[in-house]
Design a protein around this nucleic acid. Structure first.
Length: 422
RNA sequence: GGAGAGUUGGCAGAGUGGUAAUGCACCGGACUCGAAAUCCGGCGAACCGGUCUAUACCGGCGCGCAGGUUCAAAUCCUGUACUCUCCUCCA
């Protein structure tokens, strides 16, 4: 959520910067008009309330002195009606302001590339060299099915499309991968969390998924419960409606959770394999920090994600997302994309974002600055990494001509020394 | 799933229709070489609005949340969330 006062004071700049994210200037005009109306109504109704309080006090006095107050009571009866009407209008105006404001995305950081879509993303760095195959590399689903470690057909039977069974060494490989990731992040100072996998609407609002993106998630019918689309939601809402003691900042959390996404609107894309599932595991990193440190923290978080791939020996590159490709709550996002040989391209495996105070304002997460004043913290989140996609990348990058898959060194301790999946 | 109790300022804790006691904490002052103790005064979050940018003042809101009754609600009514206890069930 953007600060409405800030928008009031920097109208032109806000319009300009939000335009790069596809928000029309008229939206801001509409918002400010509604806000003006709202403030006018506030003044009106508060004036009446003040009057009400004063007269009520007089009535109380009169009653105490056993005097007649029927005249004042009659007068207040009318004022009460007026207040009620005014406040109905006020509520309407307030609802309108909130409706628009809660659907405005974060202001993009001025340094990021401006453009309407992913073609304007900028590559920062390439790490590792894609392996040269002396045979045609197979897609990971073929490798997995052949080895009997992935079963998409039965996933579809039991649950539907975009679901999968991992079996035997497949399940063990997945477990090895996320245990490895959690261990690495813990070494970097992240506290491991095992959060709820279902959250309420207030939490979904706090991180910015609601109200705008309800179609993207699975909700429990008739209940205030949503299956988390990412651990970012429970991890960031951990401190919702709290003031974090300043000496505890920065706070680093990491968690492995399943993520549930409806994938509405992505029909036909990545229909095969592990890339786009309704349920997948992800190790997430979340940070809370002081505003002045958040961009430094973003760089460190991006490194933490990259570190995992480097240790796994997976080639990847880092890109900075353009204004048009960024998520709703982010001010700046670095995506890490891993090399997928069968597709001959890099595919997203991590997304690290600085949300600045956008989520903190929605979720009321504060700290006290040097002067003891309450300020919003900055929140960051990043995948470290998407586990299913990591398994896909391992299967493809480490495949052998005979259909077996070599286990990356760093994972062998997690698999009792296993060197090859066959 | 059933029954009961609870939710008030940073904490503790009164208040059952007339506009939030008190204690601790906190801030200022006195006393003191200084501190503690004591005394005096102040303060009760956050939030919203106005003056308009002082760094203050005024007002609103505010007793879990949302409604309702009333001239007036922490107090009465309805709904709801959460916590605790007991029963039931269960991994």
């Amino acid at each position: 959520m953007l600060d409405i006062k800030m928008i009031r004071q920097n109208e032109d700049e806000v319009k300009e910067r939000l335009a790069t994210r596809g928000v029309k200037a008229e939206k801001i005009d509409e918002l400010l008009a509604a806000d003006k109306k709202r403030r006018e109504l506030v003044v009106e109704s508060e004036t009446l309330r003040q009057q009400k309080n004063e007269v009520s006090e007089a009535i109380a006095q009169a009653k105490r002195n056993q005097q007649d107050a029927s005249q004042q009571i009659a007068r207040m009866k009318k004022v009460g009606q007026q207040i009620k009407e005014l406040e109905n209008n006020l509520k309407e105006a307030q609802t309108k302001v909130e409706y628009i404001a809660s659907r405005l995305p974060n202001l993009p950081n001025p340094s990021i590339p401006v453009g309407p879509d992913e073609s304007f993303n900028v590559e920062l760095k390439k790490i590792g060299t894609p392996r040269k195959f002396d045979f045609t590399p197979k897609p990971h689903w073929e490798i997995g099915e052949k080895l009997g470690i992935l079963d998409f057909a039965r996933g579809a039977k039991a649950a539907g499309s975009r679901f999968v069974y991992y079996k035997g060494l497949g399940a063990k490989l997945e477990r090895a991968v996320y245990n490895f990731m959690l261990d690495e992040h813990t070494k970097e100072g992240y506290t491991e969390i095992l959060p709820p996998y279902i959250v309420n609407n207030a939490s979904m609002y706090g991180t910015g998924q609601f109200p705008k993106f309800k179609e993207d998630v699975f909700q429990v019918e008739g209940q205030d419960m949503t299956l988390i689309p990412t651990a970012e939601v429970p991890l960031t809402n951990y401190y919702r409606d709290e003031v974090i003691p300043t000496e505890q900042l920065p706070v680093y959390f990491t968690a492995l959770t399943p993520c549930f996404r409806s994938e509405a609107g992505s029909a036909g894309r990545d229909t095969r394999g592990l890339i786009r599932m309704h349920q997948f595991n992800k190790v997430e990193m979340v940070k809370y920090c002081k505003p002045e440190n958040s961009y430094n923290e973003l760089e460190k978080m991006t490194k933490n994600a990259g570190n995992i791939m480097e240790k796994l020996g997976l080639p990847y590159h880092i890109i900075t997302l353009s204004t048009g490709d960024m998520g709703f709550s982010a001010a700046m996002t670095h995506d890490l994309e891993v090399w997928i040989p069968a597709q001959n391209m890099y595919r997203e495996i991590s997304s690290c974002s600085n949300c600045e105070d956008f989520q903190a304002r929605r979720a009321h997460i504060q700290y006290r600055d040097k002067n003891g004043k309450l300020r919003y913290v900055h929140t960051l989140n990043g995948s470290g990494l998407a586990v299913g996609r990591t398994v896909a990348a391992i299967l493809e990058n480490y495949q052998n001509q005979d259909g077996t898959v070599t286990v990356p060194e760093v994972l062998r301790p997690y698999l009792h020394g296993l060197e090859v999946i066959k």
